[in-house]
């Protein structure tokens, strides 16, 4: 039984002057200090009695240069850590080059929650159900991390270690997430199944990104990521490269997605249903992307 508190437990709010101070403080208090940005996950978890040892909440969203989205036609997109989901959704550069990311961000909870929730926060929270994790992975996201030893990059491909567990160490603060330019002609789609139509957590989430590729036998390359079917996002790269893309091939790829995941039973859904939905929604998402690739559809 979850025994949620009526309010937040005791802690001290800490607002460091700069990144160095923030990293130092977090590293010096590895058990008791937590960084937070929008707080939408942090406060809920604190109230629910997780992280009982937390004594300091370190507000890292007001540190320099972290509230912007920048786009460079050569290098790609950078989303600052304090950028909210709503800002991601509304940004025209995101919409024109990374529309899959906007689509996934739009599916997170509700508008007022997305005012505070951040893309980087969603990634760092590392929930298996995170809506944007698939898109961030498939776009090749790399986190810019400030730690006690200065800045470094953390590619998302090796970032997720378990539910709520990541490659971040005490003192680490993510300042931004960067995405290289997508392969020209890329089309993406996020297919989310919740219990009700909007605002729910994903029972199953399927993210697909595809693009033309002259080096493959099929002339295309598809990448697929699954949410809510394992402790970390499941990624199936390089699908549908070997033979011409046909409905049968799409079906086969969807079956491959189903075979690749090992979901569990929980209050949101059974393992049996989840597996079947991975197949059906993967088929649906792959088909949408395939149709998009043929018609110039760029995702929603």
């Amino acid at each position: 039984m979850r025994e949620a508190h009526p309010g937040l437990p005791d802690f001290d709010y800490v607002r460091p002057a700069d990144l160095e101070e923030a990293s130092r403080f977090l590293a010096q208090n590895p058990q008791t200090a937590r960084p937070f940005m929008g707080g939408t996950d942090t406060f809920v978890r604190l109230r629910d009695g997780f992280w009982k040892e937390t004594r300091y909440l370190v507000d890292v969203k007001n540190l320099d240069g972290r509230s912007e989205i920048t786009f460079d036609p050569q290098k790609g997109l950078t989303v600052g850590a304090a950028v909210s989901m709503n800002q991601v959704v509304a940004n025209p550069r995101v919409g024109s080059h990374y529309s899959l990311l906007a689509q996934a961000a739009h599916r997170v909870a509700s508008y007022q929650l997305r005012t505070r929730a951040t893309l980087v926060g969603n990634v760092c929270n590392a929930s298996p159900a995170g809506d944007t994790l698939g898109a961030c992975l498939l776009f090749g996201g790399v986190l810019r991390v400030h730690g006690v030893e200065g800045f470094r990059d953390e590619p998302l491909a090796s970032f997720f270690q378990g539910p709520g567990r990541t490659a971040l160490k005490p003192g680490d603060i993510v300042t931004a997430i960067r995405f290289p330019l997508p392969v020209p002609g890329s089309v993406g789609h996020y297919e989310k199944l919740g219990r009700n139509l909007l605002s729910d957590l994903a029972i199953v989430g399927v993210t697909v990104l595809g693009h033309p590729d002259s080096s493959t036998a099929s002339g295309y390359r598809f990448h697929l990521a699954l949410a809510s079917v394992g402790p970390v996002p499941v990624v199936l790269p390089d699908l549908l490269t070997q033979a011409p893309v046909t409905p049968e091939a799409l079906e086969e790829a969807a079956g491959q997605a189903m075979e690749s995941c090992h979901p569990i039973d929980d209050v949101r859904g059974s393992a049996r249903y989840r597996k079947l939905m991975v197949r059906n929604l993967s088929r649906r998402a792959l088909t949408r992307v395939w149709e998009g690739l043929q018609s110039g559809y760029r995702g929603e």
């Binding site: 039984m1 979850r2 009700n196 139509l197 909007l198 605002s199 209050v267």
Partner: peptide, 27 residues
């Protein structure tokens, strides 16, 4: 379509809006 208090061994497993879903404006 949505609602069920999930009881297991006498414990309610979904005592929150996160996991006890009710109809929203979209439904």
């Amino acid at each position: 379509l949505f609602e069920c208090l999930q009881l297991k061994d006498g414990v309610v497993r979904n005592p929150s809006f996160v996991d006890y879903r009710i109809a929203t404006s979209a439904d």
